[in-house]
Amino acid sequence: MLTATAVPLIAPAAADAATGGRACLFLDKEGARFAGRTYGHVAWAIRDPKHAEHWIWGATEGYRGKAVIAAGSENGSWIKGGSWNDLRASLRRDGRHRAGYYDAYRCINTAGGDLKAAQRTFRTGKSSGYNVGLNNCLTKSIAIFRTYSPALSTKHLPKGEVVPPRNYFATSLDNARGWEKARTY
């Protein structure tokens, strides 16, 4: 399990400080440029239901211009752990990304969550390659959310294959149960 020095949680809303599980999806609406189009890019975050100040988060970023990356090859997957403030700071411009890298996020509360299961799913996704339509930042995020909380069925977390991440974030989650409205990042 990833650990970090305990840092007080300063959350943007009271619900963020509540106990229990919580999953958040972050959107970069200008990410994933392929063949002259922009599809959007997402990162994921989940809260430790036993330690509300601890989160793990990550993304699969693929590589610019590559629509397919073979299984076992580097696909730009990464994971981190720490406080909500650490999470927010790490999803900002870092030399590889433009200013304002993530534009918005939205979250859903869960009764609980299994961080170890989510981390196993991350490791599987990290070695499973990348495919812009079927095995991407969004589908890997959904898989992590579902193993973190099996209660996140398709009613709460629709399938994401062949749906551009920016459309999923805006439209699919608007039609799903339990997701909060998007917040500007």
Rank of each mutant, 00 (worst) to 15 (best):
residue 84 W to C: 05
residue 84 W to E: 03
residue 84 W to Y: 14
residue 85 N to C: 01
residue 85 N to M: 09
residue 85 N to I: 07
residue 85 N to D: 11
residue 87 L to Q: 12
residue 87 L to G: 12
residue 88 R to Q: 14
residue 90 S to F: 07
residue 91 L to Y: 14
residue 92 R to D: 13
residue 93 R to G: 15
residue 93 R to I: 12
residue 94 D to V: 10
residue 94 D to Q: 07
residue 95 G to V: 13
residue 95 G to C: 07
residue 98 R to L: 10
residue 99 A to E: 14
residue 99 A to W: 04
residue 100 G to A: 12
residue 100 G to P: 12
residue 101 Y to N: 10
residue 101 Y to S: 07
residue 102 Y to D: 10
residue 103 D to S: 15
residue 104 A to Y: 15
residue 104 A to H: 12
residue 105 Y to E: 10
residue 106 R to C: 09
residue 107 C to P: 09
residue 108 I to V: 13
residue 108 I to E: 02
residue 109 N to P: 10
residue 109 N to M: 03
residue 109 N to Y: 00
residue 110 T to C: 00
residue 110 T to M: 00
residue 111 A to W: 00
residue 112 G to K: 00
residue 113 G to K: 02
residue 114 D to E: 06
residue 115 L to K: 05
residue 118 A to Y: 01
residue 118 A to F: 03
residue 119 Q to L: 14
residue 120 R to L: 10
residue 120 R to Q: 11
residue 121 T to K: 13
residue 124 T to C: 03
residue 125 G to Y: 00
residue 126 K to M: 13
residue 127 S to V: 06
residue 127 S to N: 12
residue 127 S to F: 00
residue 128 S to T: 03
residue 128 S to C: 02
residue 128 S to W: 01
residue 129 G to F: 02
residue 129 G to C: 07
residue 131 N to Y: 07
residue 131 N to R: 11
residue 132 V to S: 09
residue 133 G to W: 14
residue 133 G to T: 13
residue 133 G to R: 11
residue 134 L to R: 08
residue 137 C to D: 07
residue 137 C to R: 07
residue 137 C to L: 06
residue 137 C to N: 05
residue 138 L to I: 10
residue 138 L to D: 10
residue 138 L to V: 02
residue 139 T to I: 02
residue 140 K to L: 07
residue 140 K to W: 03
residue 140 K to V: 03
residue 140 K to I: 01
residue 141 S to G: 09
residue 141 S to L: 04
residue 142 I to S: 04
residue 143 A to S: 12
residue 143 A to D: 13
residue 143 A to E: 08
residue 144 I to C: 04
residue 144 I to H: 00
residue 145 F to D: 05
residue 147 T to K: 08
residue 149 S to A: 12
residue 149 S to G: 04
residue 149 S to Y: 01
residue 149 S to N: 05
residue 150 P to D: 08
residue 150 P to I: 05
residue 150 P to H: 01
residue 150 P to A: 03
residue 151 A to E: 12
residue 152 L to D: 02
residue 152 L to T: 03
residue 153 S to L: 09
residue 153 S to V: 07
residue 153 S to N: 13
residue 154 T to G: 12
residue 155 K to H: 11
residue 155 K to W: 02
residue 156 H to K: 14
residue 156 H to T: 09
